[in-house]
Design a protein around this nucleic acid. Sequence first.
DNA 1: TAAAGAAAGTTTTTT
DNA 2: ACTTTCTTTA
Length: 832
Amino acid sequence: MTDFLSSLNEEQRQAVLATEGPLLILAGAGSGKTRVIAHRIAYLIAEKQVPTWNILAVTFTNKAAQEMRTRVQRLLHGQHLSGTPLVSTFHSLCVRILRQDIEKLNENYSRRFTIYDQDDSLRLIKNCIKDLGYDDKKLGPRAVQGSVSGAKNRGESVGAYAARAESADERRVSIARVYKLYEERLQANNALDFDDLLIKTVRLLRKVGEIREKYNNKFRYILVDEYQDTNSLQFALIRFLTEKHQNICVVGDEDQSIYKWRGADITNILNFEQHFPDTKIIRLEQNYRSTQTILDVAGAVVKHNIERKGKKLWTSNPAGDRVRYYQAFDAESEARFVASRILEHRQEQYDLRSAVLYRTNSQSRVFEEAMRRAGLPYNIVGGFSFYERIEVRDIIAYLKLALNPNDSIALARVINSPPRGIGKQTLEEIDRRARESGCTPWKAISSIIERPEGLSSRAVSALRNFRKLISDLGAMAGDVQSPTSNVQGLQSNLETQNSELETDSPVSVSDSDSPVSDIVKAAILNTGYENTLKSENTDEAEARLENLQELVNAAVDYDEQGIEGLRDFIDHSALVSDTDQYKGDAPVTLMTAHSAKGLEFPLVFIVGLEDGLFPHSRSATDPAELEEERRLCYVAMTRAERFLYVTHAMKRRVYGEELASEPSQFLNEMPLELMEDLSRGNSWLSFARGSTAVAYPGTERKEGKQYEGKTYDSVDSIAEFFKQRGQQFGHSSGGSKLSKEYGQKDASRFKSRVSSSQLDSRKARLETGSPLSQSETAVSEFAPGSYVRHAKYGRGLVLRREGAGEGLKLTVTFPGYGQKKLIQKYANLEKG
DNA sequence: TAAAGAAAGTTTTTT
DNA sequence: ACTTTCTTTA
């Protein structure tokens, strides 16, 4: 029984054995933290005889949760268990709790609430801005959404925000009004956004002692992964849930904190001992993943961070090869280089997995292209995923509307899509009546049907058909329509403390009469969606139909797995994330550095290491944000097991314009002696940093090698996506039978950004026609776009020129040092 | 009313 | 470059 302890080192074993009381595990990259958590859960069950339903493990992504479940299952292989422990993301845990108990909050929400994802929420924000008569160009819906979300996460109420806004500028006052209306409409729609899921759960636990008690009794052992990324709400949630037993085990690494921008509060982990008295601390510092060289280089970079306690990560792995560096001419040649190197590596080892990590999703496109040309099957994570496709979203909106007709966002989305003769005037009338009587658009439709003043009979009959369509779908889902009130009244469910809880049964509000797949099919057929697409007769329509077929397949899979209803299916579609698309067996994975957290690959490329891209220009103003970028770079580097490549391009298309780019300062922080330069000709590394590395000629042009096997892509199988949900609650997975090939028709987004000052200077530089090679000489004296040489910082690019004569000030960006403001008189600059 | 064409906006990272 | 949104036209 204790044999699974034998595979652990001393610290890991301690972490598994310290089952009682608060435990903080500081786990460096690659130190086996997932292993420790999995072993700990297995140990609690197998050795400590803790019932599975008393254990809760929380992660950030479905992917991580899935991984954890698999590992625990493997460890407990052969054991007879009554159910599986709950391994869940923060958000699904909250949905689970709220679907059961939200009505006890008395905030006029019913258990049938709808979840608004980012896109739904943004639409609602836009509506609010418009209806308040503000200019949505001036106010910027996205920025408003950010501000509102920030306020909500800080726990700042509408009133508090408004009060604070009054002493600020006009803009803040406007945002405060939008915030207020947004909250009112969420409530009227019986909808919760992502933030609300946490907020309402925390509030429920705070306000209702009986519920707090219930979950404290249920979850006696709680584990939290990636604790450094928790925000204040997540902290509060954990705090309430562990109140009674204090059996809380958290795992984290300050060096891998990369979500501060989303409200993550590093002090949660730094002050853990204060929050939970009698904490035991265990450090895991032995790395099992990477070569010594990779660790050294990554360590050298992150060492530049000031806000850091510092720790020593060591490994008994071999030193390995040096980190390879490549300077590409442009983004295309960078991608070609990466593809050709992957091919070479795979010639030596045919099944070598690799990852290409970039800062922004927009960079993925050239790599997709290069992989396809090279015949390399790849899997792309992030960007557009299947559930963001219009047709999938539309059908899901129909289903959401069927479950909750008050959801005005879903209604607006599908009311005339496909076109069914409900035009602008009719929509305006709905809107007018809704506002007049303060009801939802759904009810306004009924009011129009009853008293159709001022509308053509054609429009009215179109509305009647639409209403019937939706209520028929609702009836299939077993829903009783109740257009007059949100709250159904507490459905005699003061459930007995344990009988319901221990069965680990899904939280299902309305048990469906029909299988989910039938309802999905009905939504596709009865709405006219299929017919409309069929009659279009284009390739695009064909692809959309296939997507919808996948959605049906997913629903069929879902039905086979278990007893959960349509609502869970829909919930899941809102809560799956991009990183959940990761497939461990893909030969090449393309993703952002953020998405890569928690993963590992023998071969890793970090691309686009350029000033303004990685580190991102948005972080340039704030030193703390720069440090976060550096941690991100650290995370990316420590994904590599054996081979690490770092690349950058000399020019890059941004906004459809060619711009010059400078090497990232992070490249400058990597020790030269641990680098190998594979660039053709004289590279920045050899030029600016005096590398003695020998150029490695002719690796670039190797294309057209065909690889057999599956081609992966972002929408490989929709069913795959939904499959996880079943496993999350411990159902056995039916396994997806579908693994379809798919053309990569994803519209690509162009995402990379430079600050306007950089942009201008780069443009200026290109317009002067100055050559891009390092050996160029400056064109005019310290003009923007020209190069200068500084005694300490080396060669830099002039961005801006202010003043004249004695007071001539230059803003110069130095690779490795960032932007500096220099007074020409004192700086002792030479033309470079 | 809906399709087609023109102009404007977009871009960090994501549960 | 590419997507969204507004405007025009049938």
